Computed example of a mutant assay.
Amino acid sequence: MKDDKRREEQLRAFQLKLGYEFKNAELLTEALTHSSYANENNAAYNERLEFLGDAVLELVTSARLFAAYPGFSEGELTRLRARLVCKNSLSDWASDNGLKPLIRLGKSIKSPTDSMAADCVEAVFGAVFSDGGYEAARGVISRFLDTKGEAAAPVMEKDPKTELQELLQGEGKTAPVYKLIERRGPEHASSFKVALSAEGGLAAEAWGPSIKEAEFKAAKAALEKLRRS
């Protein structure tokens, strides 16, 4: 009885940190239940909510980064999103917000792994979406992203093509020229090689999964050459 009351208090404290109070408390319970506990107690567990939460997390994060980094290519946005929502990032948030002690585990598991904790975070996001809809989930996930510096206070960087062009034009030179020189792979998974040339003998080459990405990489390589010289 005492343990039940203590857990209720912990759940209330967690919801305060989450910034969302569940109308259907069973959804939160399900989100915090690992399959090992469910198998021993014939209970619902969190894998379906995790599936849903993963999708909502990706959407909210993608929209935020798309707005925050207008100069970033698809590849750069994808890599940044992956860092923000990786297993370690989610597990750290679970620790900081008191989620880990709330995870219901089977008797053979002493404590949740980082992977289990990350899965529970995604399941909680899915539970919020199920309980309160997209705007509620967006609010909770936004607060999670606020704890990640790259999403909370992004550095508004110029893309490398723009930076290189402005640098050259500032020296009275013409804009660099990009030329596709090679393509490899099937239609659905091609790689592209782009060559960059500019006044003063500046040249660089780079591969990318798209022509645009290859151009960005070539511009970055050219910028590095200029900085070294």
Rank of each mutant, 00 (worst) to 15 (best):
K2G: 01
K5W: 12
R6V: 10
E9F: 05
R12G: 01
Q15V: 00
K17T: 05
K17F: 04
L18D: 09
F22M: 07
A31G: 03
T33C: 09
N39W: 15
Y45C: 03
L49K: 12
A55D: 09
A55V: 12
V56G: 07
V56W: 09
L59H: 11
V60T: 05
P70Q: 15
L77H: 11
R79E: 10
R81K: 15
R81Y: 01
V85R: 15
C86P: 04
K87N: 13
S89Y: 08
S89F: 07
L90Y: 05
D96R: 15
L99C: 08
L102K: 10
S111K: 15
D119K: 15
E122Y: 12
A123W: 10
A127V: 08
D131R: 13
G132Q: 14
A137C: 06
R143A: 12
R143T: 12
D146F: 07
E157H: 11
E163A: 12
E163N: 10
L164H: 09
Q165V: 14
L168F: 06
G170P: 01
E171W: 05
G172I: 01
K173D: 01
T174H: 11
P176V: 11
E182T: 07
E182L: 04
R183W: 00
G185Y: 01
E187N: 05
H188G: 03
S190E: 11
A204E: 09
G208A: 05
F216W: 02
E224N: 07
